[in-house]
Simulated scan of single mutants.
Amino acid sequence: MRPDSDHVRQVLADAWERWATRCGELTAEQWSTRTRCPGWDVRALVAHLCPDKAMFDQLNAAIIDGPASVTDPAALLRRFNEPGGVAHTTADDLAERAVADAGSLTAPAATARFAECARIVRETPMPQQTVIRYPVVESTTLAVVAEVALMEATVHLLDLADAVGGVDPSPDALAITRDLLVGVPDAVAVVEVLAGRTAPETALPAIR
């Protein structure tokens, strides 16, 4: 069973608030610290993840009638991460874009953007059944997009913590992200890895 969309929305807002707080504390040295994401310092990591309030207008404009093609965030990630999927074909472009965007991003600006978007998410209902147009899969729901956004915020918050410390994801964010990522690979492969029957590389990494 997927988590309640209102709960995911609140946990996502909390995650972005944690980003806002930590960005507001970063020193100039920490801002340029290398991360474990190849080619990215902290500034580029923040630039990659930092939300913009314009995206809410884009999501509202994408709302459509009818059933969604994808209603499970794990299925969405599976499609993106299959051989030849967009997670692989666009990875280099995304990495380069983050570095380029980082050039004009300051820590105070990132703090403001995270805080503002967290406030909007907290205040904006996100019905489980709201369908939007979405690249690659044609359509999905706002609830799916929110859960994937929470996963991204959580995984990259761990990257930030690894680089400069001083922040941790919430227990709820970790639990929701764990359950989502476990659902991405083939179920048999995951069970055999977790049971120690096969090597982790047969099922991991689940996403790029």
Rank of each mutant, 00 (worst) to 15 (best):
I120A: 01
E147M: 04
L142M: 05
V86F: 11
G196E: 02
S32R: 15
V8C: 03
P67Y: 12
A87L: 10
A15V: 05
E152N: 05
E29Y: 03
L158C: 13
V190G: 02
I207S: 05
V46W: 13
S139R: 10
S32N: 10
Y134A: 09
P108T: 06
G24K: 04
R113V: 01
G85A: 00
A74V: 01
L158K: 12
I120T: 01
Q128S: 12
D72R: 12
A47E: 04
T154D: 01
V11N: 06
A15E: 02
A87Q: 06
V184C: 00
M151L: 12
A75C: 15
R197L: 13
A187S: 11
G183Q: 04
L49I: 06
A109S: 09
L76Y: 15
R9Y: 03
R133E: 15
D93A: 11
E96I: 07
R43L: 12
R36Y: 13
E123W: 12
A68K: 12
A153R: 04
L94Y: 10
A112I: 03
L204Q: 09
V191D: 15
L157D: 02
A102C: 00
V137P: 02
W19Q: 02
T141N: 01
A107D: 01
D14A: 13
S170L: 09
A189P: 02
G84E: 04
P125K: 05
G85V: 00
A75R: 14
C23H: 14
T21R: 14
A98E: 00
Q10Y: 09
V42C: 00
A195F: 15
D101C: 09
D162C: 14
L77M: 14
V190C: 00
A153K: 04
Q58I: 13
D172M: 10
L45Q: 06
D101T: 08
R34A: 14
G183H: 06
A15C: 02
A189V: 12
I64M: 15
P171Q: 14
F80Q: 12
T35I: 01
G166P: 05
V145R: 15
N60P: 14
H88L: 12
S32G: 11
Q128I: 09
I132H: 07
I120L: 03
P83L: 03
A112L: 08
R197I: 05
R43F: 03
A206M: 07
R119D: 14
D65F: 11
R2K: 07
A163K: 08
A173Y: 05
R2D: 11
V8M: 05
P205Y: 04
Q129L: 06
T89P: 05
P108I: 06
A75I: 11
Y134I: 03
C23M: 09
T177M: 04
R119Q: 11
Q10R: 15
D6Y: 07
T71F: 11
D101L: 06
R113Y: 03
L180H: 09
A98H: 00
I132N: 09
G39V: 14
A187R: 09
A28M: 08
A163N: 06
A153Y: 05
D101Y: 07
